[in-house]
């Protein structure tokens, strides 16, 4: 059966029109783009908030705000001249005040507790120092490769607790501790002196402000100098969801751009 040419044209045009309008209608009336599937493999660690604050806050403010205070020592908050009294239990262990239960105390100075007493050190058969019970929580010896540098008197003076002694017998105060470290870690000390090792804060342009260098002990616990493992901050959000969430939400009038209200729609890793 043959068609007249006009009829055929009509059919083609009619078909195309229906097809195009159908496509257009399906596009126009389709709901907003569904949230893009998230890859389940990308689990996210909810870490404590990045302290915006670390840049513009004092140490007490930081600690009070629940920030990461692991880098601070006692005197970041306490007055050094009126140091707090340390309470000890019957077994000689230090009793931590409740508010500091979570703090990792760094034993900065023996003579804070040991005033005018002679220190006896007990050795195990393999030469390791036997840690007294009072120090089990405070002081984990882990110095040297394979933790073999465990003898207190490799660094501390045997007779004067607030003095350090290098291998060649030079006596140093605690303030001079970097020199003690240097007696073994020469290249690192040289780097540190040049500002290459360790962080420098403050001003790179020393004509405009002070550059703040850190001592070895600011970052390394001298008894276990390896930097401990850190919980990483969360990584970037999965790529595919970039921007779609907020655009879809704004379409429904659920969130206004620029108001904190829209913040509520996103997961909040920043609050504790």
């Amino acid at each position: 059966m043959s068609m007249r040419p006009g009829q055929k044209t009509n059919l083609v045009i009619g078909g195309l029109v229906v097809l195009f309008l159908g496509l257009a209608a399906s596009f126009a009336f389709s709901p907003n783009p569904a949230p893009v599937r998230q890859d389940p493999a990308l689990t996210r660690v909810v870490a404590p908030a990045p302290q915006v604050a670390t840049l513009r806050m004092t140490a007490p403010q930081l600690a009070a705000g629940g920030g990461d205070a692991s880098i601070l020592d006692c005197y970041a908050c306490h007055d050094e001249k009126k140091s707090p009294t340390v309470k000890m239990g019957a077994d000689g262990a230090i009793v931590f005040p409740k508010e500091h239960a979570d703090l990792r105390l760094m034993m900065a100075n023996c003579s804070t507790c040991h005033v005018g007493k002679k220190l006896e050190v007990e050795y195990a058969k393999n030469g390791d120092v036997v840690m007294p019970k009072a120090h089990e929580d405070l002081l984990k010896m882990g110095h040297g490769r394979n933790n073999r540098n465990t003898n207190c008197f490799n660094c501390h003076s045997q007779t004067k607790l607030n003095e350090l002694v290098t291998r060649d017998g030079t006596r140093l105060t605690f303030a001079q501790a970097p020199l003690l470290c240097a007696s073994c870690h020469g290249p690192t000390y040289r780097d540190w002196e040049l500002g290459v090792h360790g962080r420098t804060n403050g001003y790179w342009d020393t004509s405009q402000g002070k550059a703040v260098r850190q001592d070895c002990n600011a970052c390394h616990d001298p008894h276990g100098p390896a930097i401990p493992q850190i919980i990483p901050f969360p990584g970037p959000k999965p790529v595919l969801t970039h921007g779609l969430g907020s655009a879809g939400a704004a379409e429904h009038g659920a969130a206004e751009v620029g108001t904190p209200k829209s913040e509520g729609a996103q997961p909040k890793p920043e609050t504790k």
Binding site: L16, V17, F20, L21, A24, F27, A28, P33, H242, G243, L244, S246, A247, A250, E251
Partner: peptide
Amino acid sequence: ALAAICALGLNAYARQLVHGLAI
């Protein structure tokens, strides 16, 4: 039909202007 599709494109562009290229 073509004009309807043009209007749809116009609408899509208007939405893009409001919400940004993210859409």
